[in-house]
Simulated scan of single mutants.
Amino acid sequence: MDPEAFEKMLESLGPEEIDRRNQIQHELNVQEYERFKDSYSRGECYLCGKPFKTISKEKPCLHWLLRRCKFKAKDFPKLYREFDYHQMESYLRWIANEERFQGNINDLKDERSEKKVFQTTIQWKNIKWTFECSESDYQGHEGTKSDFPHFHFQMRIEERPFLKFNSHHIPFSERDLFNLDLVREKPDIVHHDFGPGGSGMQEAVEIEPQDIVENTTLCEDEAEATYHIQTMIKADKEPISGDAIAAMAEESRKTGKPMASLVQKYLGESVQGSTVVSPSESVPKIAKRTARKRNNQ
């Protein structure tokens, strides 16, 4: 089914039936995520039911990418022949969010090249995975061995390369292409995500700044933070009391509330304040793929 046919199908269903189907799918996704979390807490993979430390070459499983087993780079094709792009990225997003919610997944549109269909770096413990697809990858490189829609994947362990971007041209499944075409061509009617545990920094920064300020708590360790919150305060008339600033800082330290959420309580309406919420410095940078140099003939 192409995007146009899918849109017509949705129109024929009506809003109530669409809501009903969305709710059923959401409940199924939540149940799957709960199975994942339960298995993860035991150090097991919910897909195959085996500990992360085990590997069976006859039965490829995505937990190999956690490198807790004797997974080798040469075995990677076995994985992408068994699992498609959406399955791979969903799984690794869920894994990363068990360590730090959203802050371990950099899918920020502002940091992505305009020439990329997608570009996401995911971090978990000492591993970083990056999914990348350019427009030319999506169309297939005509006249080459990779003349089919595909994406690239990088895996680094302790910042050392384990799987390189250009080592594999990974084909999209038919389901991948259908989902990606829908999102690209019908963004007004289709929203795609990676399940209840798959959100990254793009969703994090789309939350209203005031809601972030009022509902977040401070992290003692910057490496665990999702946001960086900076507040600037300017007095209209009277000088700002040093005692008030000290009291505000003390409550912030004791309660974990950001100082930005305490400005009105301690300084009242006599000050002008502005708060800037941005991704934490500890959010992994999106890994970039460098173009191969071609030798002139």
Rank of each mutant, 00 (worst) to 15 (best):
P3T: 10
P3L: 09
L10A: 07
E16P: 06
I18M: 10
I18E: 10
R21C: 01
N22C: 10
N22V: 02
Q23I: 04
Q25Y: 11
V30E: 15
V30M: 14
E32L: 09
S39L: 05
R42S: 10
C45W: 00
F52L: 10
K53V: 13
T54P: 00
K57S: 10
K57T: 12
K59C: 07
K59R: 15
L65K: 05
R68F: 08
K70G: 04
K72G: 10
L79M: 12
R81D: 14
F83W: 07
F83M: 10
D84I: 01
Q87K: 09
R93M: 08
A96R: 11
E99L: 05
F101W: 10
Q102P: 00
I105H: 04
D110P: 02
F118C: 03
I127G: 02
W129F: 07
Q139Y: 10
Q139E: 15
G143F: 04
H150E: 02
F151M: 02
H152Q: 06
F153I: 08
Q154G: 13
Q154K: 14
M155N: 03
F162Y: 06
S173P: 01
R175Q: 10
L177E: 05
N179C: 12
L182H: 02
L182I: 01
R184W: 02
D188T: 08
V190I: 15
F194Y: 15
P196K: 12
S199V: 06
E203P: 00
E203K: 11
E206S: 14
N215D: 03
T217N: 12
E220L: 13
E220H: 10
T226E: 08
I229E: 03
M232V: 14
K234W: 02
A235G: 04
K237W: 13
A249H: 08
E250T: 12
E251F: 02
E251R: 06
K254H: 06
P258F: 06
L262I: 03
L267P: 03
S274C: 03
T275P: 02
V276K: 12
S280N: 12
E281I: 01
A291K: 15
R292C: 02
N296P: 01
